[in-house]
Design a protein around this nucleic acid. Structure first.
Lengths: 144, 144
DNA sequence: CTGATATTTAGAATAATTCTAATTAGTCCT
DNA sequence: AGGACTAATTAGAATTATTCTAAATATCAG
């Protein structure tokens, strides 16, 4: 699910304060979060674990999962699922969806054209109120 | 991923021919498929297994997975993923997306308003050609 | 019928994630 | 600062959906 959020993001580890949205920024959470800020390629938990280990060799994979959960819970990151692949994580809080290049596996953030609401296109059942929406797209790049 | 497909569906087991879209209809595949036709509540593999077992007590869970794979491969059913929950399966081949009621867990098929293309609303990267698209929505029903 | 191929089966294996219980770190008093 | 609470981290075990393996069975082509 992707949230709509106008708040300014830290761009580097140094800008991450002691506490963010009520979440205590422990050393481990800061490290996980800053790995996501540094390289926005939608890594999965294991990839994040490997990257964090470089600067913090004693961290455990369980902690990475705990940190990711906490960051997701507090709305600092989004969890992205493509089918049943391992979940990926994303710091982009602006409303967007995901396009995966089937050739390279690379995931692109895709934003909405101005003033567009996906739900306007749908025949939602009467009375249905949307609280989470996830759109994932796969495809190729023309002539590649 | 949900396909666009105007072909008429069998409504019951009796109508399922020997072969469908090049897929040999073995006893097990027919049974799995007819369970999906009978009760269109988006069951997962294990639920399908339990239902099929009633009429075919010797079937194995691995076979249910094999049959579901074959049916998906041949475009007879769709696989539906909500986050990291077990995959669910759906015989509705018309273009549609899924809305899950967070209160009851019930999944509703949601169709598009006439002439609407989701991808028209998106700023897709230059040259991107969509081949699969999955949209899942969760929410509540007003006043419930 | 006979051999070739495809499917089914039971059970083991895999892999992402979660859980458990013990340790460590951080916070809040006074 | 010291002591008591609480929260977070850790290693490793457990869980669970799914896939794999190898043997048995069914189906098809000639």
């Amino acid at each position: 699910m992707v949230r709509n959020d106008a708040e300014k993001l830290p761009v580097s580890a140094k800008e991450i304060p002691q506490e963010l949205r009520g979440l205590r920024m422990t050393k481990q959470r800061r490290e996980v979060y800053s790995v996501l800020l540094r390289n926005r390629d939608h890594p999965n938990a294991n990839e994040i674990f490997q990257r964090v280990q470089k600067g913090m060799p004693t961290i455990s994979l369980a902690t990475v999962y705990n940190c990711l959960d906490a960051l997701v819970e507090h709305g600092l990151i989004n969890q992205v699922n493509f089918d049943r692949e391992p979940s990926r994580f994303c710091v982009n809080l602006a409303p967007h969806v995901h396009f995966q290049d089937k050739k390279t596996g690379v995931i692109h953030d895709v934003s909405f054209k101005d003033g567009c609401q996906i739900t306007d296109l749908l025949d939602l059942p009467r009375g249905a109120e949307v609280s989470e929406l996830e759109l994932t797209i796969r495809g190729f790049f023309k002539g590649s």
